[in-house]
Simulated scan of single mutants.
Amino acid sequence: MPRNARFTLPDRPAIYHIISRTALSGFPLGDIEKDKLLDIIRYFSRIYFVDILGFAIMGNHWHLAVKVYPHEYAYRDEVKERFARRYGEDVHFGDQDMEKFSKKWTDLSEFVREIKQTFSRYYNKRHNRRGFFWGERFKSMIVQEGHTLVNMLAYIDLNPIRAGIVKKPEDYRWCSLGYHTQTGNKDGLLSIDFGMKEWNEFNPSEIVRKYRQFVYETGAVDAGKGKVMDKKIVEKARKKNYKISRSDRFRYRCRYFTDSGVIGGKDFVQEVFDQVKHLLGSKDERKFTPVGGVEGLYSMKRLGQT
């Protein structure tokens, strides 16, 4: 029986809610796997003509809200730049490449396929296994901007709440609000187009604050599916007008003190890395992560998380 064709809007950018589940039993996506999957999403979001609006990576599935731009938005200079990013500056870029990749890199199915295949290869190698990792083909639905979009994004961010993993979305670093809070939206991965244009708000921090308010208020409503946010937590956030203080940000980001393999000044981290990099099985230079909220402090992930 032939598969149903995916809905697309070829004449304008379209927002999709994507859901993909694993084929394995239990919860095969642990912390290290979630970090890797997010790295892969981040990488391909810089190749494809997409904006990442939100995500939640759970133990056996993941959600992604993405805006995909049609073929007409793939201008030659931008395709060429992404081609160099993908294949290197020295690889020739010709007319055939322009035709091929302007279509490929504006295709939702190709975007998700590359993410899933890349992760499958990583997972199988890491766990010394063969075979399928993902289950049935991913689900996707077109989402209207505005009120529908912000509700859908809140639904995604509330996944770890409904699952009873954390009390607040910010406590879960593999969802949008957790990523905003714990990393300061590292590398600009997330667009802050939360469907709130009708509020006429253009200050990024204020947009995130209002979105956080919407998520909290929505999360406190019992929809009959999974756990809800503790009303005491919501009330406490209300009193703070849903702002996150500097001390709160530091507390969220202090996970680096437990998740890092090395932490300290940049020169110190580099010195230690030079002494242990032979254990990584790679000659690549390591990029160190600034610890948000602490001036001059850097971290390197544990060796097991590379």
Rank of each mutant, 00 (worst) to 15 (best):
5 A>L: 15
7 F>K: 13
14 A>Y: 05
21 R>C: 13
21 R>F: 03
23 A>V: 15
27 F>C: 09
44 F>P: 13
46 R>T: 05
49 F>E: 01
49 F>N: 00
50 V>A: 08
58 M>I: 00
60 N>P: 02
61 H>S: 01
66 V>H: 07
73 Y>M: 00
77 D>G: 06
79 V>F: 03
80 K>N: 10
81 E>T: 09
86 R>K: 09
88 G>P: 00
89 E>S: 07
93 F>L: 03
106 T>L: 13
115 I>R: 12
120 S>E: 05
122 Y>V: 05
122 Y>H: 08
123 Y>Q: 10
123 Y>N: 08
129 R>V: 06
129 R>A: 13
133 F>T: 01
134 W>M: 04
138 F>S: 03
139 K>I: 09
139 K>L: 06
143 V>G: 07
152 M>Q: 15
157 D>P: 01
158 L>C: 04
159 N>A: 13
160 P>I: 09
163 A>L: 12
165 I>W: 02
165 I>Q: 04
166 V>I: 11
174 W>P: 06
175 C>N: 02
181 T>E: 00
190 L>T: 11
193 D>M: 11
202 F>K: 03
202 F>G: 04
205 S>I: 09
207 I>Y: 01
208 V>C: 10
208 V>L: 03
215 V>P: 05
219 G>W: 00
232 K>S: 10
243 K>G: 06
243 K>P: 02
247 S>I: 10
248 D>P: 12
251 R>S: 15
252 Y>P: 07
258 T>F: 14
263 I>V: 12
271 E>Y: 15
272 V>L: 10
275 Q>L: 12
276 V>S: 00
277 K>Y: 02
282 S>T: 11
283 K>R: 04
287 K>R: 05
288 F>L: 08
291 V>Q: 06
294 V>P: 14
298 Y>G: 14
